[in-house]
């Protein structure tokens, strides 16, 4: 628990962070920038779990364990996405989603 900072302020921060991530994901066309926006969202959730655990139910450490798993899985997901993006770059020399698209309606 941080002195002088309420749960409301922390949750406001993480909500803003989350929606900045969604905005970035929807507006960027560069795959790496989209991946960074995803990271923002996942980090917002990790903070969320820790803060809620600390302020609302400090007796059981469920939320902190959860955020550890979130960090690990986010790293795995990023590694997988980067591998695929790298392969796409080798094939097309481009990672802009608007220009590499072949599959359409």
């Amino acid at each position: 628990m941080i002195e002088g900072v309420s749960l409301f302020e922390i949750l406001s921060l993480t909500t803003v962070l989350f929606f900045v991530g969604i905005y970035g994901f929807l507006t960027r066309t560069n795959l790496i920038a989209m991946l960074m926006s995803l990271e923002l969202m996942v980090n917002a959730e990790a903070i969320n779990f820790v803060a809620i655990n600390k302020y609302l139910s400090p007796a059981v450490l469920q939320g902190q364990i959860f955020s550890l798993f979130i960090i690990a899985l986010a790293a795995a997901e990023t590694a997988l996405a980067l591998a695929i993006i790298l392969h796409l770059y080798r094939l097309t020399e481009n990672i802009d989603v608007k220009e590499v698209e072949e599959l359409k309606y």
Binding site: L35, M41, E45, A81, L88
Partner: peptide
Amino acid sequence: SIEAGVKYVMLASLSSAILLFGVSLVYA
């Protein structure tokens, strides 16, 4: 195949991020 993979990995990560935010609200 690669393009399908890129689309899938991006949208799957987005959806799981949204799901996690929902889980954190339910946890709260």
